[in-house]
Simulated scan of single mutants.
Amino acid sequence: MAESSSKGLRRIKLGSQGLQVSAQGLGCMGMSSFYGPPKPESQMIDLILHAVRQGVSFLDTSDIYGPFTNEILIGKAIREGGLKGIVEIATKFGIKYCDDGTREVRGDPGYVREACEASLRRLGLDCIDLYYQHRVDTRVPIEVTMGELKKLVEEGKIKYIGLSEACASTIRRAHAVHPITAVQLEWSLWSRDVEKDIIPTCRELGIGIVAYSPLGRGFFSYGPDMVNQLSDQDFRKCRDADGTIFSSRDEKIVPSKDMDEFRHEKTIPPEVSDDGRTNLDRKPPDSHPTVEMLPRGLAMTICIKVPIFLRACKWRHSEISVHMSLCILSPQ
């Protein structure tokens, strides 16, 4: 049995609803999809168990990773490592593969319940600790989706509710139906648009932030030459007709309403801006990193997921140096 190290990462409160997790989480997407071909299952289980021994107890997955195979992998790691009651599992619903190869965003109540129960089976769990809506379905009022999630909480199938890549107004409307514990979004030196409205909204409402890709999907640790080392199956290497790098992850997702609202809910990948530029085209901001901007007494906790297999590095910008193996910003 893998036991979380008492000498490892400290535990923190994520949001204000009672969820406690390790200060660093393990994002498991790249083990099964998107970042090249699936990795050997036995090696990935060993990696997960190693992370838990170091104190990482917050594991993040989704039904779209694989699809489905990443949740199955996490379920096997839980069984083989005896991790029930030791780790906190976050998974997601809301993006569905269609028969024609496109992906559709769904948030209707029937699908919400169906997806949750399928994730429980794949994970081998009776209850999911944190259940996110992966992308917002703008065809369905968020209040309707939240109403079904609230029922799942009352039935004991999920403990806490989260949103991924939702705009500030949607977060407020959802939170009015049932408290949101965490919002997951991309936040790093080159993806800072969330600081204008979303971060202040979460601070006001006491909602935790789970920031994915804080190392810029590997570019901040490996540098631009990383592109030349990526496999053809790695979505970070996908390009359009004129050679512009873009994310294949969401480029075929069917928009729910008009394109403006579609973009507003950020179902278009955050690394591609509305003007068509990618983050590779953007210059680093002149201001200090986000870590410098957060005041003491902050009314929220930020848990940053960093794949454990990324080498330790120092993130330097201006006068600030942040060691990414300690990637957590929390109330002082």
Rank of each mutant, 00 (worst) to 15 (best):
K84S: 09
M324T: 13
V140H: 03
G8A: 02
S231D: 15
W187D: 08
F246Y: 09
V136M: 06
K196M: 07
C167Q: 12
D63N: 13
L149E: 03
Q54E: 09
E41C: 01
L205T: 02
G8T: 05
R113V: 09
E265C: 12
P37M: 04
V322G: 02
D197Q: 13
I64T: 04
E117L: 10
F58R: 00
K252H: 15
M300V: 14
N228P: 00
L130H: 04
Y212N: 14
Q332S: 11
F262M: 11
S231T: 15
A312C: 06
R236Y: 04
M44I: 14
S6F: 13
D242N: 14
R53A: 12
Q20D: 14
E148S: 14
P141Q: 00
V254T: 11
G82I: 08
H264P: 02
I86M: 10
G162V: 01
S256L: 12
F246L: 15
L125H: 08
D275N: 10
L120Y: 03
I161C: 01
R316Y: 10
K76M: 11
R103G: 05
S256C: 15
A241W: 13
V87G: 00
A312P: 14
F262K: 02
E165G: 02
D250V: 15
Y111S: 05
W315G: 08
G218S: 03
T278H: 10
T201N: 04
S221F: 14
R135N: 00
V227M: 13
F34R: 06
C238Q: 15
C167H: 09
S32F: 01
L26K: 00
R239A: 12
L185I: 11
E117Y: 05
L125D: 01
E41V: 04
P269C: 11
Q17D: 09
A168G: 01
V227F: 06
P224T: 10
H264N: 10
I328G: 13
I89N: 00
E204G: 00
Q24D: 03
D126G: 11
I320M: 12
R217P: 08
